[in-house]
């Protein structure tokens, strides 16, 4: 596939990636680029392996073919400790938040600081409160994760992800299952963190409206291929039927409403023999 984006200023570049799980091909020779300092969104229906892509970028999974470089380093050729060094500069926000359930909010945010730095406790406290302030949850520092709403848990996880001042944050479905208010809060947070901290963001989502509101560039994936890419405006005006169906949410189109089956009338009229 030809790259329409120059890879000069890309922080992450994916080249000719193929990956399959069992017999199902999740990615079939795709190439993507993620620009430094921008918000890039990967969109597509559920089950297209968007989360898998993030795990491949983070080095948790290995591709069958292809190369993924992050900040100039080939992720899958790194030794274990080099990979861990790289990951310290990446933040990842999991769909569930992935907060450690046996610690309160404060300790969760302090966790990466305590694991990776030898800062005095007073300094850690200051840093944690700053990060919590940034996500508006400084007052919730003593709550346990099970006392948080889904949106709050994601904001805490976000505070934790930025604890070590990473260069890039990967968001896995940040908007799924949120009420409109927390959704608004998250959209605002992602946008402002990206601008204020000079981060690079990669968002994986199937939420068309909110994602296109903040993304600088969008890739639309389906069936292991890139079916559309461009700025949100370009995507909106895409002439691809598939992209149109996805963006407007039409029930039928190139993606059929019906799971493949034999002819409806024949099926009804058949004698009901088991087959």
């Amino acid at each position: 596939m030809d790259n329409s984006v120059s890879s000069q200023d890309s922080i992450v570049s994916v080249r000719n990636l193929s990956f399959s799980r069992g017999n199902k091909k999740i990615f079939d020779d795709i190439s993507l680029d993620f620009q430094r300092g921008k918000i890039t969104a990967i969109m597509g229906p559920s089950g297209t392996g968007k989360t898998t892509l993030l795990k491949l970028i983070g080095g948790q999974l290995f591709p069958e073919q292809g190369v993924i470089t992050v900040d100039g380093q080939d992720v899958h050729k790194l030794r274990r400790n080099e990979l861990y060094e790289l990951r310290k500069r990446l933040g990842m926000l999991f769909q569930s938040g992935a907060l450690l359930t046996d610690m309160n909010v404060f300790d969760n945010v302090a966790f990466p600081l305590r694991e990776h730095t030898h800062l005095p406790e007073s300094m850690i406290r200051t840093l944690v409160l700053m990060k919590l302030q940034a996500v508006g949850l400084r007052g919730a520092r003593n709550l346990m994760p099970n006392e948080l709403s889904g949106g709050m848990a994601r904001r805490v996880a976000l505070a934790r992800a930025i604890a070590l001042d990473p260069m890039m944050i990967l968001y896995d479905e940040p908007f799924t299952g949120q009420d409109p208010i927390s959704m608004g809060v998250l959209v605002h947070l992602i946008k402002s963190l990206n601008n204020i901290l000079g981060l690079t963001s990669i968002i994986v989502s199937h939420d068309v409206h909110d994602t296109s509101a903040i993304a600088d560039y969008i890739y639309v994936l389906s069936g292991g291929k890139i079916v559309g890419q461009g700025t949100p405006e370009e995507i909106q005006q895409s002439d691809s039927e598939w992209v149109q169906q996805f963006m407007t949410g039409a029930a039928d189109g190139p993606v059929h409403f019906h799971y493949p089956a034999k002819d409806y009338v024949d099926d009804l009229m058949s004698t009901g023999k088991r087959y």
């Binding site: 990951r87 310290k88 999991f94 569930s96 992935a98 450690l100 359930t101 990466p112 996880a157």
Partner: peptide, 22 residues
């Protein structure tokens, strides 16, 4: 098992903390 199911182990790995050792 629950830590795995709720992505806590995976999250820890992404924070460059080895969940097995930690």
């Amino acid at each position: 098992g629950l830590m795995k199911a709720t992505e806590q182990l995976s999250g820890m790995e992404m924070m460059a903390v080895d969940p097995i050792k930690r």
